[in-house]
């Protein structure tokens, strides 16, 4: 094909990102207009401009926009953390929670709920738990000699299992009045708070840094030694990936609990759609993770309205079949 003589295969990158951006706008439109109170498009637009009826304004600006924004930021964080974790652990099954960050957060959050703390206290406790677990994994997995991927993965998985047991223990001994709140926290639950500028800053900064080292990430996925031979400081890169992914996960978990599947499935969906060049996978996963969670959050508060479902249940319902389908299709294409 003479036409492809100087073109590279991934020349469609901008188009896929553009499509995802349009999807994101669409997802926000759905999230703002759908719900127990119907608001039409004109109402949404008026509400966004700060005009219109007071009901429209209250519903769109004070209820739905903060939740949608939170969902988008959390989804973006989980998508990005998933990509980084899969590269760091050299394992396509890795997700943001595999190293026990969410487990540490869960134990701390459940204890806070047990003590009767309120939203801010629970989030604060979860943040402390997540960061403590992250440092514990880092220190324990370093040991003597090299910081090997296998030891990191095993340390994280064992610690996560340990946190899981502690969570079960707390659930078993807690009074019934607290258990429902605990289960909602564990399944992932988006409360009506704005994501906050700090979290948005963490997401944007992480994305920018990760995008800046995207080519090194491509090399790392070809093997640590090969990346090193092409001039990548793999030790520094991996430590950086660990803390970036950990911080993103901790931020997401403190905001919305441990929402599953987004971090595992989204990076794979982007790769299957647009190839495995991280210059596309990183921004693509942030956008798609955000879209998925905005839609899941909308579904969670409408499917059984006026009852609300935990968002994590919805993402699992979407994530499991989509992932299995992609895996089947992939095998049919002879790529695995």
């Amino acid at each position: 094909m003479p036409s492809s003589s100087a073109k590279r295969t991934s020349s469609t990158n901008p188009r896929i990102l553009l499509a995802l951006l349009l999807l994101a706008i669409g997802a926000f439109a759905v999230a703002l207009s759908v719900g127990s109170v119907a608001v039409d498009w004109a109402g949404v637009m008026e509400g966004l401009r700060g005009r219109g009826s007071s009901v429209d304004y209250a519903v769109v600006i004070q209820l739905r926009l903060p939740r949608a924004a939170t969902a988008f930021v959390v989804g973006g964080m989980l998508g990005l953390a998933g990509v980084l974790m899969q590269i760091l652990l050299r394992n396509p099954l890795a997700d943001p929670y595999v190293l026990g960050v969410s487990g540490g957060a869960a134990v701390a959050a459940l204890l806070a709920i047990l003590l009767g703390w309120h939203t801010v206290g629970i989030s604060g406790a979860a943040a402390v738990g997540a960061l403590a677990s992250m440092f514990l994994v880092f220190v324990l997995s370093r040991g003597r000699g090299d910081w090997s991927t296998t030891r990191l993965l095993l340390t994280g998985v064992v610690l996560a299992a340990g946190w899981g047991a502690v969570v079960s223990f707390i659930l078993a001994v807690s009074p019934d009045a607290h258990v429902r709140g605990m289960l909602f926290w564990l399944m992932g639950d988006i409360r009506e708070s704005f994501p906050g500028w700090i979290r948005l800053g963490i997401l944007m900064t992480s994305l920018l840094i990760a995008f800046g080292i995207a080519r090194s990430l491509n090399l790392l996925s070809l093997g640590e030694l090969r990346a090193e031979s092409l001039g990548v400081n793999t030790t520094l890169l991996r430590v950086g990936l660990f803390f970036m992914a950990g911080l993103l996960t901790a931020s997401a978990v403190t905001l919305a609990g441990a929402i599953g599947f987004v971090g595992l499935v989204v990076p794979h969906m982007v790769r299957l759609w647009g190839g495995s060049d991280h210059r596309l996978v990183l921004p693509g996963s942030v956008l798609l993770g955000g879209v998925l969670l905005v839609l899941a959050e909308t579904a969670a508060r409408t499917i059984m309205a006026p009852n609300q479902l935990p968002v994590g249940v919805i993402t699992a319902f979407i994530g499991v079949p989509v992932f299995l389908y992609l895996l089947q299709r992939d095998r049919a294409g002879g790529r695995t």
Binding site: R8, T9, S10, Q86, I87, R90, P92, R215, S216, N218, L219, S221, L222, G223, L225, R226, S229, L230, G231, V232, R271, G275, S276, D277, R335
Partner: peptide, 24 residues
């Protein structure tokens, strides 16, 4: 250096793989 064996975590295209040589 050409290693005895190479691994791939996520499948990249042949051209993208060859282009990794330009990294340095």
């Amino acid at each position: 250096i050409l290693f005895q064996e190479n691994e791939t975590l996520f499948p990249a295209s042949v051209l993208d793989t060859v282009l990794t040589g330009r990294h340095p």
